[in-house]
């Protein structure tokens, strides 16, 4: 594959790791997204309404406020986590290039 001709094995491995971390993080956060919005806000809303929080029945609170705040939190976690993966990828690529002078030549 031409991809391999452009990248050394180390670099390709770093990219693969980056992508699998991204996909796993996204999947986990989407699970939480569904649990907040569709779970607490809709599917379990009637059951949750037996409890209350700050004067709100809990299911009602999730549907009108709680899920919304949860969504904001999920995006923040995503942005922080992906920023970390970005930095790790950059460091691994630098290391890979330092270990493989041929890579530098190809770039030049």
């Amino acid at each position: 594959m031409p991809k391999e001709s452009r990248r050394s094995e180390l670099e390709a491995a770093a990219h693969r790791r980056y992508w699998s971390h991204s996909v796993r993080t996204i999947a986990l956060l989407l699970l939480l997204w569904a649990a907040f919005g569709l779970g607490c806000g809709v599917l379990w809303a009637d059951a949750l309404n037996r409890w209350s929080i700050g004067g709100f029945p809990l299911g009602f609170w999730f549907a009108q406020q709680g899920s919304l705040l949860g969504f904001l939190l999920l995006i923040a976690i995503y942005a922080v986590a992906m920023g970390r993966f970005d930095r790790r990828l950059r460091a691994e690529l630098d290391a890979a290039r330092a270990a493989d002078p041929a890579s530098e030549e190809r770039r030049a």
Binding site: W33, Q64, S67, L68, F71
Partner: peptide
């Protein structure tokens, strides 16, 4: 009442999909 929450959740939850996917 409660069902109004579907607009609130729908129009904000979409931003999670947008941001992540």
């Amino acid at each position: 009442g409660y069902a109004g929450g579907m607009y609130l959740m729908g129009w904000t939850g979409g931003y999670v999909l947008l941001a992540l996917l």
